[in-house]
Design a protein around this nucleic acid. Structure first.
Lengths: 205, 205
DNA sequence: TGCCGCATGACAGAAACTGTCAAAATCGAG
DNA sequence: CTCGATTTTGACAGTTTCTGTCATGCGGCA
């Protein structure tokens, strides 16, 4: 059954490579057009013309035009969740989160100009902001699951959802603050500072 | 200049009343159709047919089909912000928020079936969830402004945004938890409980 | 080489919008 | 009440996103 793969360079066949290549081309062409002309002003037709595929093919790769942007912003949330899940459960959650970030998001955040371009796109395209928030909302559910296993609590209980939401919130807020005062500082410190705020009560009784 | 208005019953002219009436009719017809058939399955044509106006007119009242749902969910966020702004600045923020809620959201939350219908709509229509989150995100900015004036901090500083975000987060989470275990309990206690959680650190260092 | 499967392209069409312009209703003044 | 100005509406054409369908063709495999 299993063929021995020594040259794992390109495990899948030629067709699969071509497919992945087309996907990348679409994403890249779209990114350039979006950053140059804006999201709304860029039609799917513009994108497929640049890559020379049919518009029907585009929608086979990306269910909607918005999904294309989600793919662009694909920070490594999956890696983050994996990394977090593998931290020891008795470690302080803040520490676990920081360590997990170092092995996942931190890499994407190195490319500040890329992050800046992406945040600009979100900044002045309400529909994309909405889509991204929905993505964050989805991730919140996943994160709540991981957190619940650490405290063997209810993944859909108030506490888990609140903590997960707060972590996502801190990250998003940090990115926004970093973006607003756009010196070319590193992003990570902003995030760690925002996460640090969560160790103090947000409301005083 | 000013004509003396004794019968302030209907200050604006006949046209304005008619306009408002059409708006209400559109909203109500849409609500029924959405709740009955779902959001996606309901076309703008269905809605305008029910009210007997042209589809072009619909888009003069609501920029998009989504905005119609936002109007349906119009909880009194404006009232909440006003009420909060008028609380004494030296009062504990949690208390201020609770009092402000009592005079704004609490009223809308009385109609649990209505809230339930709306949350159901959000639950199984991703695009509406996204839109609603964007709305929440906008409100977060406004709330951060009010909070900043109390602590004379920076409205777009990390702390203000974080606190505002956490409050919105607590409310949304409470609504979701209430919705998931749908006994016909009152909503307010869920919200107050979630807000109470914010008085303890969400992360331990 | 020759067959199979899947990706692609070329349609046609639904549905959400938008611009434009003429008809109709409302309003304000005489 | 009438007339003209302003506003609201409807009709129409057009763009854009997105979907179903079906025939063509390329890559994979014997």
């Amino acid at each position: 059954m299993d063929t021995v793969l020594l040259a794992t360079e390109t495990p899948p066949g030629l067709a699969a490579r071509k497919k992945e290549r087309t996907r990348q081309q679409l994403a890249e062409a779209a990114a350039q057009l979006f950053y140059r002309n804006g999201y709304d002003a860029t039609t799917v037709d513009d994108i497929v013309t640049a890559v020379d595929v049919s518009s029907r093919t585009f929608f086979r790769y990306f269910p909607t035009k918005e999904d294309l942007v989600v793919a662009l912003g694909q920070t490594s949330m999956g890696s983050f969740l994996d990394a977090l899940a593998q931290r020891p459960a008795d470690e302080a959650l803040l520490t676990s989160v920081q360590r997990a970030i170092e092995n996942s998001f931190a890499l994407s955040w190195k490319d500040t100009t890329r992050v800046c371009s992406f945040l600009t796109l979100l900044h002045d395209t309400p529909v994309l902001r909405a889509r991204w928030l929905e993505e964050s909302n989805h991730n919140r559910g996943l994160l709540a699951g991981v957190i619940a296993t650490r405290t063997d609590g209810d993944p859909s209980g108030t506490r888990s959802l609140l903590i997960a939401g707060a972590i996502i919130l801190a990250i998003d807020t940090a990115l926004q603050v970093w973006f607003d005062q756009d010196d070319e500082d590193e992003i990570a410190p902003f995030v760690y500072r925002a996460l640090g705020e969560l160790t103090t009560p947000l409301l005083t009784p």
